[in-house]
Amino acid sequence: MELRQLRYFVAVADELNFGRAAERLRIAGPSLSQQIKALERDLGVRLFDRDRRSVSLTPAGAALLPDTRALLARADDLKRRAGRLSGSESVRLGYVNWLPPDLTSRTAAVAQVHVDAWVAPSHTQAARVADGSLDLAVCWVRTEDLDRLGVRARLLGADRLHAVARGGDSRDVPVVAARDTDVLIDDDLTSWASWNVYAEELAQATGARTVRISDGAITGPAFFDHVRRCRRPVLNSPKGQLTPLPPDLVRREIVTPKPYWTWSLVWRQNEDRAGVLAAVDALCDGVGDVGIHAPDAWLPADDPHALTG
């Protein structure tokens, strides 16, 4: 019997649906079912009655559920206490593609910050903080996300976005108004949900034109192919372009307004671990508005950092 199996038991008991529980736990449905069966074998009792239409707790499952919750709570408390006794709590941090360059030096004195290896989109990382898979995440969020997920956010950084256009002479490249740009919107909501929300609001607010794609080329080499097909400069996403700009394309500054993408540090509203809260303070200390509250800057209306400037 393992603690993770007990967490699986609680998740299925909460959802009374293996599919929803698997999604919440971010594991495959067949794996969850196998783990529950293994737990039932170890305990010697059946925890759930299940058929094709429904899942319900057995009397044994209902009787063991309160003790299981209490046991998991004690395990979590033990981990927190051990972290405090060691002098530095372990803090799990997820990100999309940007992290503060001085993250380690800022947090070394207050917590052991472990950067999660799973790089995922902003909406996924925020949801992982909400469900406890991460303690912190650096991502883009909306005020709506804070309320819905039960998380808090503080500004950590911002990227001023630019456009990429055809034309190989980079010595005298004119600026371009936001209304004269194209904005790519991808049909893949799993990867690009946050970007699509941002891009659609930018287009609505400035008059930029949206271009729907379905090949995931918001960034990467295929992005340049879209730039070549579009007649207008194309907004570059904040996810970063690892491929060098081809010689037949140029970078153009966007003005009137200047679009910014914010990076927020996100943590749970009910977070009480001293190490996590100390890491928040250490990372956010001294971060100003990084230009996003200038008169000609633009943020989505639902960006929490747009409300303070």
Rank of each mutant, 00 (worst) to 15 (best):
88 S>N: 07
85 L>K: 09
47 L>E: 04
104 T>P: 00
111 A>P: 00
130 A>W: 02
120 A>S: 08
125 Q>M: 14
101 P>M: 13
36 I>A: 09
139 C>V: 15
124 T>C: 02
81 R>Q: 14
144 E>D: 13
126 A>D: 07
150 G>C: 05
79 K>W: 08
43 L>F: 04
164 V>W: 13
157 G>K: 08
128 R>F: 11
56 S>W: 02
153 A>Y: 10
95 Y>H: 13
48 F>H: 00
71 L>E: 14
122 S>V: 00
131 D>R: 11
67 D>I: 01
129 V>P: 06
135 D>R: 05
37 K>T: 15
72 L>R: 08
52 R>F: 12
128 R>W: 15
116 D>T: 07
37 K>I: 07
107 T>F: 04
146 L>D: 05
134 L>W: 07
68 T>A: 14
40 E>S: 09
110 V>P: 04
123 H>Q: 12
55 V>A: 10
100 P>I: 06
84 R>D: 13
152 R>K: 12
129 V>C: 09
170 S>I: 10
134 L>T: 02
75 A>N: 09
166 R>S: 10
85 L>G: 01
118 W>P: 01
68 T>R: 06
55 V>F: 13
57 L>Q: 00
161 L>D: 03
54 S>N: 07
140 W>G: 05
107 T>Q: 02
41 R>Q: 15
117 A>T: 14
60 A>W: 07
171 R>E: 12
129 V>M: 08
62 A>G: 01
128 R>P: 00
124 T>N: 09
70 A>V: 06
145 D>F: 05
85 L>S: 09
148 R>A: 15
57 L>W: 00
139 C>A: 15
81 R>V: 10
125 Q>W: 03
71 L>Q: 07
40 E>T: 03
111 A>Y: 01
75 A>Q: 12
146 L>A: 03
165 A>S: 12
164 V>G: 02
143 T>F: 04
153 A>F: 14
104 T>V: 13
94 G>Q: 06
45 V>L: 07
99 L>R: 05
129 V>Q: 06
161 L>I: 06
116 D>L: 05
108 A>M: 12
124 T>F: 11
70 A>T: 05
121 P>R: 02
139 C>T: 14
157 G>P: 06
110 V>M: 01
48 F>K: 01
57 L>G: 05
152 R>G: 01
115 V>N: 00
67 D>H: 14
55 V>Y: 03
164 V>L: 10
141 V>Q: 04
171 R>C: 03
102 D>I: 08
110 V>S: 05
87 G>P: 06
103 L>D: 03
121 P>T: 05
131 D>N: 14
132 G>P: 08
143 T>W: 02
127 A>S: 14
100 P>Q: 02
